[in-house]
Computed example of a mutant assay.
Amino acid sequence: MSAPTHTRPHPAITGGVGTRLPWWALALPTLAFIALFALILNPSEAHATTGGEPAVAQLVERAQQLLTLGR
């Protein structure tokens, strides 16, 4: 016994594709690329932080403080 087949296309395919990206979906990666490219061209403009502790150590310390507050 054969099963009936569907000859109609899927409803999502019949309409035109109307996918539109928001303006920032293209603008933000473009700005990030330009900023990184500018740092490659002129690395003297890339200033390191001059604080006493590295940023990672400050981040870990802050995370520990937040975890102890939740107890």
Rank of each mutant, 00 (worst) to 15 (best):
S2R: 04
A32G: 14
A3P: 00
Q58W: 00
P9Q: 02
E45D: 15
H6P: 06
L28M: 14
L31Q: 03
A25G: 14
L41G: 14
G16R: 14
F33H: 10
R20M: 08
T14I: 12
L59I: 00
P22L: 03
T68V: 05
L21D: 13
R20N: 12
R8H: 05
S44C: 02
A32T: 06
L59M: 04
L31V: 11
T7E: 08
L69T: 11
L66T: 10
P4L: 11
T49C: 06
S2G: 04
N42G: 02
P54Y: 00
G51F: 00
G70A: 11
T7F: 01
T7R: 07
P43T: 09
V56P: 00
L39R: 09
V17T: 05
S44M: 08
I40K: 13
I40H: 03
W23Q: 12
G70W: 01
L31T: 14
P11W: 10
W23Y: 12
L59V: 00
V56A: 14
L21Y: 10
E45H: 09
S2A: 07
F37M: 15
A38S: 12
Q65E: 15
L36N: 08
A48M: 01
L59F: 00
A38T: 13
V17S: 09
L69G: 15
S44W: 02
R62M: 01
R8G: 11
A27R: 11
L67N: 15
T5C: 04
W23N: 07
G15E: 09
S44G: 03
R8D: 14
A12E: 08
P11M: 08
A35E: 06
P29W: 04
T5L: 13
A55K: 02
F33G: 02
P11Q: 11
A25C: 03
L36H: 05
G70T: 07
I34S: 08
H6F: 13
L36F: 05
P43A: 02
F33W: 09
A3H: 02
Q64D: 13
P4D: 11
L39P: 01
G51Q: 03
W23H: 09
G51Y: 01
P22I: 00
S2P: 12
T30I: 14
G16V: 08
T50W: 02
T7Q: 11
G51A: 05
L21E: 09
R20K: 15
R8W: 04
T68L: 06
P4G: 02
L26H: 09
V60A: 06
T68D: 06
G70Q: 10
H47N: 15
I40W: 11
G18W: 01
L41N: 06
A32Y: 03
V17A: 11
P22E: 14
T30E: 03
A57P: 00
L59Y: 00
P43C: 05
E45N: 11
A38N: 04
S44L: 05
G51S: 11
A3V: 05
A48Y: 02
V56S: 09
A25K: 12
F33I: 15
P54W: 00
P4S: 12
L39K: 08
P9V: 04
A35C: 06
L41W: 05
G15N: 10
T49F: 07
T14R: 14
Q64C: 01
T5E: 09
I40F: 06
V17Y: 06
I34L: 15
A48V: 12
P4T: 10
L36D: 12
A25P: 05
A35P: 01
L39F: 14
L67E: 12
E61M: 01
L36S: 01
L31P: 03
F33S: 09
P22D: 13
R62D: 13
V17L: 07
